[in-house]
Write a protein that binds this DNA or RNA. Structure first.
Length: 739
DNA sequence: AGCACGCCGACT
DNA sequence: GTCGGCGTGCTC
């Protein structure tokens, strides 16, 4: 009884002690944490990972910060069932998760869930059963037993099956020796998922500009605290070697490191480069990790056993024990943006994570995003330039092919100039790469008799013919059917005509001109899947193909050392698709693809077929003067009020028809005077998916200040439950403006 | 996000 | 007469 109880009866009629109540974030789109009671004798603190009952099921939640406000009826409260034997989510990580939830207007529980994506990792990993040689002799010695004893005499511990395997015997031989007391069973801590990296395993091979860049980066890391460095270096300039030095220094200081990569760039060759420098591989984190490995990596990142993780965007939400550096490689890559459930850009959120925990972050790209470029120019980011290639690898010599002057033959898409280039290249025994970012045979098929165009029955886009598979497919929603022989409208046979090129059609044209050459088509829908693709890429690297025709996927990661010619079939593709980033994306893609050539030290070339040779993107590519392009692009966005500077948001609305989406936009314009413009991109300009009979439109909203945007979006979300179902919000704002 | 409840169409 | 579609509502 407390001294200040009003009277004896008052305290008698109250429950003796109201058990402690704590907020718990549950994996559910609730706007705030739920309240749970803490059973007597149970200890929890903010960050504790717990199991709680939620309706009929049990879920994993995190004890959150703050006091219970008593707003929930005490009768509704249920008790925490279990506290996991796991280090709690740290204060800074909790702050980060709260920040992301606020910024992306997402329910905090769903954001927290992203940090807990490892089903069974919250209990300590079980001890591994091992064997230790005790000594002595078995009653009867056999050759098999002798071999086992030979292996085990070093006194180190073995696993049962490992020892049997090493001695070349079955496990029953080992079991027999255990039974005789020659070995004893011991319990070992689970093995680390990767070995410890050694910052000084091998000396960095750096020269010239690289050396200066490495010094700059080292100074950033040494001075400690939050800073953003942007490494802007052409393909092959040795960016990776430079940021490896930042990693080495962070490791020497005893902190963990996170390397973010677009999923597709997380390749065996990257891991090997890391291993060559640090003597061990980084732990990997991506969507198709085996569940068991996933749990191990999560657990060991949390306990600090793993020092370096290389992962896709979701790795940003790993609750590291003591993170001290983030590298965002290929920072411009759109794959960093997640567009379902919680909408976020991992590159931007990584900057925030570094800011909150006060450590440096390094953004890396050959073609920085306009946002990062702006931040570099304004001095918020420190830019480190690497303008030249490393070693003897020269930049390819790039030329535009004006298609108005060098028209292809009738029915073809390759200009005589490009065909001549290919011929010369394969004559020399070198490889040529033809790039066209369009899968299939032709993007549109129509009937020559009645003009019928094959359109997807489920959405508004054209059906793409795939001759290899004898199908016509919708690239928007995945609909597919067999290629018909007759027109479904007028019934005429054999009068269907393909319009425009896809990679399959280019392959056909190439085979017509170079029947002897070994030609291969690489595209994401390749029969045989990722496995087959890997094999083909290896084969190409070994020179087992003369002409490679590929879509977007040849732009990333893989190097083709024998490639001396890159031909861009349609450099203009993608410039007019209604995306405000079209020019930037095209510039980035073309830079990456042309960068695939010229790593051998041999003379190499790039030919870009275009109908718009004066276009700023084309000029920037061939002149190698990205600066002028960026300045222009920044100016364009300023004029269009689509700046990358904290004022652009993009919202996806579902509606039955364009008219409805327009009405919605009008409503928003009236309700939101603080934003300076709302414009619609819809199926007509950029076919977004049609989901269950509803078109999806993208609204671009721009305001003068980031805070206006936030206020607007909050108001919009609060509009009402019906709206919330169909209106998805995705913020696309530069985080630094909030810091 | 899950999961239950609840109300209308094609089948053993 | 039931099985099963997905619309609405609730979870501390």
């Amino acid at each position: 009884m407390t001294k200040d109880s009003p009277n004896l009866f008052g305290s008698l009629f109250e429950p003796a002690t109201r058990s402690r109540v704590v907020p718990v974030l549950v994996p559910m789109p609730a706007p705030k944490p739920y309240s749970y009671t803490v059973p007597d004798g149970v200890a929890v603190e903010p960050g504790s990972i717990v199991q709680v009952p939620l309706g009929p099921r049990k879920v994993i939640g995190v004890v959150w910060d703050g006091e219970d406000d008593g707003s929930v009826d005490a009768k509704k409260l249920r008790a925490i069932e279990r506290v996991f034997d796991c280090p709690p989510i740290g204060r800074e990580m909790r702050q980060f998760l709260d920040w992301v939830a606020g910024y992306t207007l997402s329910p905090p529980g769903l954001v927290a869930r992203m940090a807990l994506r490892a089903p069974a990792a919250f209990d300590p990993e079980p001890m591994v059963e091992g064997l230790r040689f005790v000594g002595g002799q078995p009653e009867r010695m056999t050759p098999a037993r002798a071999r086992v004893l030979d292996m085990a005499r070093d006194g180190l511990s073995w696993t049962r099956s490992g020892l049997a395997h090493a001695a070349g015997v079955s496990t029953s031989v080992v079991d027999g020796l255990i039974a005789q007391g020659i070995f004893e069973t011991i319990f070992l801590p689970p093995p680390p998922v990767v070995a410890l990296p050694d910052p000084d395993f091998s000396a960095p091979r750096l020269e010239g500009v690289q050396k200066d860049a490495a010094v700059d980066i080292l100074n950033t890391v040494r001075s400690g605290g939050f800073s953003v460095a942007l490494i802007d270096g052409v393909t092959g300039s040795g960016k990776t070697e430079v940021y490896f030095e930042a990693i080495a220094e962070t490791l020497r200081r005893g902190k963990q490191v996170l390397i973010l990569l677009p999923e597709i760039a997380l390749t065996a060759s990257f891991l090997e480069r890391f291993q060559d420098r640090f003597g061990a591989k980084p732990a990997e984190w991506h969507s198709d990790l085996a569940p068991r490995t996933r749990e191990k990596v999560w657990r060991q990142a949390v306990t600090g056993e793993v020092r370096v993780v290389a992962g896709a965007r979701s790795a940003l939400f790993l609750p590291f024990e003591d993170l001290g550096l983030i590298i965002v490689d290929e920072e411009h890559d759109p794959a960093y943006k997640q567009e379902d459930r919680v909408y976020y850009n991992a590159r931007d959120m990584a900057v925030v994570r570094a800011r909150i925990s006060d450590f440096p972050i390094v953004l890396v790209s050959a073609t920085p995003s306009v946002e990062s470029q702006v931040n570099g120019q304004s001095g918020r980011y420190t830019t480190i330039h690497l303008p030249t290639r490393f070693g003897d690898a020269a930049l390819p010599d790039l030329h535009l092919v004006d298609m108005r002057r060098h028209a292809p033959e009738r029915g073809g898409f390759l200009s005589p100039v490009l065909l001549r280039g290919i011929g010369k290249t394969i004559e020399r025994g070198e490889q040529a790469l033809l790039f066209l970012n369009r899968r299939g045979y032709a993007p549109l098929t129509l009937c020559r008799v009645c003009g019928h165009r094959f359109q997807c029955p489920q959405c508004s886009s054209w059906l793409v013919e795939h001759r290899f598979r004898n199908q016509i497919q919708c690239h928007q929603c995945g609909y597919a059917e067999r290629t018909p022989e007759a027109c479904p409208d007028c019934g005429t046979l054999d009068h269907l005509v393909a319009c425009g090129p896809g990679v399959e059609r280019i392959a056909e044209e190439v085979e017509r001109h170079f029947p002897e050459a070994r030609t291969i088509v690489l595209s994401s829908d390749m029969a045989g899947g990722v496995k087959r693709l890997r094999l083909e890429l290896d084969a190409i690297a070994k020179g087992e193909a003369d002409i490679v025709i590929g879509t977007q996927l040849v732009a990333k990661g893989h190097n083709f050392p024998l490639m001396t010619l890159v031909g861009i079939v349609d450099a203009d593709l993608g410039l007019a698709n209604g995306d405000p980033r079209a020019a930037e994306r095209t510039f980035q893609l073309l830079s990456q693809v042309t960068g695939r050539a010229g790593r051998t030290g041999r003379e190499s070339h790039g030919l870009l077929q275009t109908y718009q040779p004066q276009h700023p993107v084309m000029q920037a590519i061939v002149s190698g003067d990205a600066g002028a392009f960026y300045d222009r692009e920044i100016g364009e966005r300023e004029r269009a009020l689509l700046p990358p500077f904290g004022r652009l948001a993009s919202i996806i609305v579902s509606a039955d028809a364009r008219g409805d989406a327009e009405a919605h936009a009008r409503g928003l314009r009236q309700a939101a005077p603080q934003v300076s413009g709302i414009s619609i991109l819809g199926p007509a300009e950029a076919p977004l998916a049609l989901v269950r009979g509803r078109h999806r439109f993208r609204l671009l909203v721009h305001g003068r200040r980031a805070s206006d945007m936030q206020a607007f979006l909050r108001a919009m979300l609060a509009h009402g439950p019906k709206e919330r179902g169909s209106v998805h919000v995705q913020l696309d704002i530069d985080p630094q403006s909030f810091l």
